[in-house]
Write a protein that binds this DNA or RNA. Structure first.
Lengths: 104, 104
DNA sequence: CTTGACACATAGCGTCGCTATGCATACCAT
DNA sequence: ATGGTATGCATAGCGACGCTATGTGTCAAG
């Protein structure tokens, strides 16, 4: 998978993972890898800034937790985040159909 | 359609349009609009640099033509461009499936 | 006691689509 | 004639954002 294929779609992916249940950054990375069949193996330097950005935008809220001596920042969708996910999904569907139509 | 949704996929779209038949920049824009059902209405400032980039990469060749007092630069796929289109299509399919799997 | 998984953070880079702008020709309606 | 619209190409500069590289620290396994 080339570098910039994700550009503009990563937010939707992260929101979608968090729609299932709250999770911390590292776990989000694992779930993206799993749910994409290995296609999305994202470096931490990609994901953490996304989480900060989404939280700044009001789409996520977060809190520190401590599990087995390890601190984790657990993120969850806000109401606004859930709405945003809906928009992003629609956008993806429109985009995906359009690309398909051109490439066909 | 948001600004950066296309990022990383535009080359494939342009190559795909030119795979049907050679065309000049402005016509490529029109065909993208048409074939995408209006979803892709790209400004010239987006498309012309792509054409230059693809030609520099050896995926396109071009020549000036004169039609009804208007000069046009007509682009056509090279053999390498045809191969590249195949790769890009595969990449798109993999990407698209992966996103679908995560968003589902 | 070192390797590797877990866990977070951020500075800096590079790519690339978009905006804005400029130039030029053709055609149509007023 | 003239002004608007479509046609046609080009490029400077901006901004967004994913990635690399690097740093910090904990814990389990060998």
């Amino acid at each position: 998978m080339k570098a910039d294929t994700l550009k503009g779609h990563l937010d939707a992916l992260v929101l979608s993972v968090l729609a299932a249940e709250p999770a911390h950054g590292y776990a989000i990375i694992e779930r993206l890898k799993l749910r994409s069949g290995g296609a999305f193996a994202l470096p931490e330097g990609t994901v953490y800034p996304v989480l900060h950005r989404l939280e700044r935008g009001g789409f996520l809220s977060s809190e520190w937790t401590e599990v087995a001596g390890r601190r984790r920042r657990v993120y969850r969708l806000t109401r606004s985040g859930r709405r945003e996910l809906g928009l992003r999904k629609n956008e993806w569907n429109a985009f995906s159909r359009a690309v398909q139509a051109v490439l066909a």
